[in-house]
Amino acid sequence: MHHLLLFNIIDQIRALGWGGAFTLLRNGIVLGSLYSLIALGYTMVYGILKLLNFAHGDVFMIGTFMGYGVLIAFGGALAPTIPFIPLILLMFAVSMAGSGVVGVGIERFAYRPLRNAPRIAPLISALGVAFFLENSAQLLTNSAHELYNGYALGGKNGNFGPLLNPVFTIDQVPVTVIMVIVVLTAIALMAALVLIVYRTKLGKAMRATSFDREAASMMGIDTDRVISMTFFIGSVLAGAAGVMYGLYIGDAYFFIGFLFGLKAFTAAVVGGIGSLPGAMLGGVLIGVVEAFATGYAGGQWSEIVVFGILILFLLVRPTGLLGSPAIQKV
């Protein structure tokens, strides 16, 4: 028997084998897709306002509750009153739109009044909003873990539904419908985001405003509106991540925004805060690192490793993997 962590890890790697490694990789990519979606919101807001929007993780948390609310309104996963595909689509629609509105509201009331204040002021305001949202959710939900029971969606008489069916298997490791949904939805949303940012008038106005807000307003761009839209889009992505978190991981809980949000923030920093491809890459990287740390070293290590990486990047490479070197340290 060894007591050294390193030996334990090596034993674990041997014991789990290739199948185990693939399982961890699979879990990491699915989890990482959610981190990527949330990281995009952090990075977009940072890009346009140079603000770390600490409340963003809690917008994601509210998204999980909105999805849950729709699910319950239609009978819950065990006895849904409408077919499960429209139900899931409705959960996405409501959570995405609702989170978007919450994000816009946060910007309007907590950040916009501080637009010309020193940079520390909106940062403190962001922390305040985060606590406000967490504590409100705690009060409103009585600190309950609201279970999605996503496994039962579409199943008959409370049996397993199709979400846990394998789509394909690699080395006897199944990749299920919900995993495919998470990854494909994340990819589709990111593709849509890239199209918006690089191809539409709004997206170009967002880039112009990020680069030089005053010059953008000199072109007639209503920069307040552009900033609102940035919060809206980032929060819509967080809302989508919220529903998928509920369906895949299982529950809505007032405190998930903190830890999950912090990991997504780590992803944004690792990718290079302000960079869209960076947030996407960073999310998947953090997801995979976390999954391997959990699988090989044990769950108690996952946070230590992830936040160790955050500290390492902040110290050694604050611009992240894909960030521009000119970026300011916060």
């Binding site: 008038k201 170009k204 106005a205 112009a208 030089d212 005053e214 010059a215 953008a216």
Partner: peptide, 15 residues
Amino acid sequence: RLFGPMTVLENLEMG
């Protein structure tokens, strides 16, 4: 005050 990371065409579009 050009938008440096955007193309010339995009700068004109912003105008």
